[in-house]
Design a protein around this nucleic acid. Structure first.
Lengths: 115, 115
DNA sequence: GGATTGTTCTAGTTGAGCCATAACAACTAG
DNA sequence: CTAGTTGTTATGGCTCAACTAGAACAATCC
């Protein structure tokens, strides 16, 4: 797993983990059916508590990104192709850069638009 | 000011304030040069501490959204038209809905793309 | 049976967010 | 010049979410 944790970031660790897995799955770097590391293993390799990883996994499960089963582990769920979504996001990033809009503002706009 | 604060939300109060001002400015509801309420006044009307509002204002200033001056108050800065950005964001929202992508995933994708 | 792995429970620590108060500095208005 | 306004900075205390720690339990795999 190529996950990076920044313990000095204000963003909660479980959100950092979840966020990165979401990206990997959505962009296809983690194909459907792929098995994620066992929570205990990932916790060890990230030097984080087991429960922190589990909370991230459970959030992902609640959103249908992965499936969890005892004894079996965490498996990437079957999700549709996100090509169109990625193209749209690229447009947003390009526009934000051209207009010199700060990332926090762009995030605020999307967040509100998604509501 | 049309600001709404949700004290039961997990999102910090200062972020809620900043986020809403960002949206208002970016969408043109607050024209450049418009004066924002004095921090003390806004704090009172939102029933929030002065420092909470000030932190939001300072974040906005750091991003060039507003200008702050003692004795003068907070004034929204001169920003370009964001029409293109809004159009792009609408595309993202539409794609996310069509593909059934959870909001958290969409946010994660944009956040990473903005990095 | 034994190892693996998610689930659940209890309990403690830490730090960000927030509030309260106060003094100070720059600006405005009279 | 004087008085009021407003942002700036500093200190202290409180609360709760995040994180950690340890343990037992249940489903699955080999």
């Amino acid at each position: 797993m190529l996950l990076r944790i920044d313990t000095s970031s204000p963003e909660p660790l479980f959100e950092q983990i979840g966020s990165q897995v979401r990206s990997l799955v959505a962009r296809g770097d983690l194909a459907a059916g792929t098995r994620l590391p066992a929570a205990r293993d990932l916790a060890t390799s990230l030097d984080v508590n087991l429960h922190t990883v589990l909370r991230a996994y459970q959030d992902l499960r609640d959103d249908g990104v992965i499936e969890l089963r005892r004894g079996r582990g965490a498996v990437v769920a079957d999700v549709p192709d996100h090509a169109r979504l990625h193209a749209a996001i690229d447009q947003v990033v390009a526009a934000a850069r051209d207009l010199d809009v700060p990332p926090a503002t762009t995030m605020a706009l999307l967040k509100e638009a998604l509501r």
